[in-house]
Design a protein around this nucleic acid. Structure first.
Lengths: 376, 376
DNA sequence: TACTTCGCTGCAAAGGTTTGCAGAGAGATC
DNA sequence: GATCTCTCTGCAAACCTTTGCAGCGAAGTA
């Protein structure tokens, strides 16, 4: 039933190799022959079998995209950007969801390994050593995790968290809670580290609550704790948790931002739709998706090939592109943050508005600066 | 570099066919030999090349999932359910996003065709005839579209729309607007048809606005039109549009539900987080994902194989599983609907509460009934 | 002992494609 | 007219598996 290269060859009276070349190296075949072959192929509805092609070329023209949780609105912009970027380079993207499960991640990398030319690992939950081990099986680009010796795309959430804490301190908050993210998250550690340092500098006290699942429910479940902690401001690991917290506080009758200020991270589109609108640290997710694809495909020719073209012993040293890209974040101030109990009074250290890239939100949504290679 | 079956054979001193059988038919090989081979394979880090296997067996153990828009929160539950169901049957799911673009859909089906055993086509935007044509290339299950002769998973949005209109009419609304969905959407047509009929029965007038992009912005952009239309209630194609409309009305100073009632469709998790909370028609998305996978894999053995095992001429008649499943929907009443201008006055036809499956929302979220094969 | 049965293993073809190499013509150059 | 160059095409091996068939030795049966 499925029409193969052989059928086309028979129909157009040429050898299969000529048909093959008609598609993969058209300049090598006589224009007349070419049109004839193409006509026959069209007629018969022939489509090259990419799997068979991959078997010999070692190139599938697919890339895998492993995502911690598709339901998290943080990811779709990244996915779409990656897909669009890949499409331009004639690659297809296969997305897979791991449900925040480290074991599922490993399993998926293995399953994808032979079917794609490389894998984008987004917000991985597994251990560094496992990632390194897997990177020997298939080219990997890691997003939202820093690993020496592996290409990484990072977002400067440290700077973002710092800006957020400075913003809160500037508003007169001295007791601040941090809603931590999931275990195994590099971003969560980064935020915690930077927020802790910024709080110390600003003379504020930071209470860490967590780890928590990075979902609305994770935030909602901590509302009671937040109230009990007696803080006047909260920085959440991500917008989803911040939104859940908004809900939870509302249910407890706690007014935001009058009684408690809330800051999220990510600037998902939803954060403009809550009441109050969420103050948040915008992360350049689309840029991250594009960049990750670029880094993976950067050296098309460097990608390992199983086919005989890349002769054994030619390049024994495995590809080790260690470029790491850090993308900038930006604090977007909306309505969920307001004056704290110490507003107006003098505070130890720090000015009212820190040096971070703050911005009062404009209606059109944030324009996020991106770029900045920090190492390579 | 990549270790093949041959390396394992060499290392364990057996023929490659024995190694192959160790993995794909363990009962055929001597236990002693088996452990030796497995040990060598483990040692060398051997992983069967699924692509090569697929070349001969005709089975990739992958299924493709084509989605109109990953950013639409309607889809993630469906994706996750499909993935989980597939995993249980030792299948992997490759998700791809089409950006609501019919051309991208076709392109993706072609790209996936030879790399998966079947494709789930969710909310397709392309024409029926094209879908039928593509279904000859690869087994297809269609979600959210009815096509004779193809397996379909449908949600009874007609019933949902009817319930919504009856609910609104029961509250005393007689001028109702319908925010249509995207062109090419079966669901949109279905809603429009059923809502029109229900409005006629209830003695209400239905104004159709659209088609619109099925996004927040699509709803937001229609806020002005809604106000100008002078209606007291709106049924939107989906929750995202309803939420956008909520925003738009808020910006125009129109109070919901005091001045205008709003009903959405889908019951995405977000609809519980808006202010006011959204009244909506819950659709069984997870059930749809599970069902679609089941239908595709139902007859593992029926799937066409390119390998020689399925000899030519044995089953010439292509598989034509025409089972169609209709899943039930349910109206979930929250806070975005309230009494209309004719509340309390007598209305032509219909009782205050129609016969549809209405339910006052409970905090735990909806339990949706599913099932009901309507044809096969 | 001769024969069958059974469990295990090896052989080789097949699946659809790519690609290095060689060969066949045609045209150009001297 | 001989030689060279160049363009195009065919040949066949290779990629990594699976699987029908056949063979081999051991155990069981008569």
């Amino acid at each position: 039933m499925p029409v193969t290269i052989r059928d086309v060859a028979r129909a157009s009276g040429v050898h299969i190799s000529t048909v093959s070349r008609t598609f993969s190296a058209p300049h090598l075949v006589n224009p007349e022959t070419r049109v004839r072959v193409l006509a026959c192929a069209e007629d018969l509805g022939y489509r090259p079998n990419r799997a068979a092609r991959a078997l010999i070329t070692g190139r599938t023209h697919n890339i895998g995209l492993i995502i911690a949780d598709i339901a998290n609105p943080f990811f779709p912009p990244l996915i779409k950007a990656a897909e669009s970027q890949a499409r331009h380079r004639d690659y297809h993207v296969f997305v897979a969801d791991t449900n925040e499960d480290a074991a599922a991640e490993e399993e998926l990398v293995h399953a994808l390994a032979k079917q794609v030319d490389g894998v984008l690992l987004c917000s991985p939950r597994m251990s560094n050593s496992l990632i390194e081990q897997l990177s020997r099986e298939v080219p990997l680009v890691v997003v939202n995790r820093q690993l020496a010796g592996l290409p990484c795309v990072l977002m400067d959430v440290g700077q973002g968290a710092r800006s957020a804490i400075e913003h809160l301190a500037g508003l007169g908050h001295r007791e601040i809670a941090l809603l931590g993210g999931p275990r195994g998250s590099w971003t969560s550690r980064e935020i915690r580290r930077a927020a802790g340092a910024a709080a110390r500098t600003a003379g504020a006290e930071l209470t860490v609550l967590g780890p928590n699942p990075p979902t609305e429910h994770g935030g909602l479940a901590q509302a009671e704790q937040v109230r009990r902690a007696g803080v006047s401001a909260v920085l959440a690991y991500n917008d989803l948790m911040a939104i859940g917290l908004l809900e939870g506080l509302d249910a407890l009758g706690v007014a935001v931002p009058q009684e408690v200020s809330v800051v999220g991270v990510d600037d998902i589109s939803l954060s403009r739709l809550t009441r109050p609108k969420l103050t948040t640290v915008a992360t350049p997710t689309a840029a991250a998706g594009r960049t990750a694809v670029d880094m993976l495909l950067q050296h098309d020719t460097d990608l390992p090939r199983t086919g005989r073209a890349g002769g054994a012993g030619t390049t024994v040293g495995v590809r080790r592109t260690t470029a790491q890209v850090m993308l900038q974040t930006e604090l977007v101030i909306r309505d969920s943050t307001g004056p704290g109990p110490y507003a107006g009074r003098e505070r130890p250290g720090a000015t009212a508005e820190g040096p971070g890239p703050h911005r009062r939100a404009d209606p059109g949504g944030p324009r996020v600066a991106a770029g900045d290679v920090v190492a390579s």
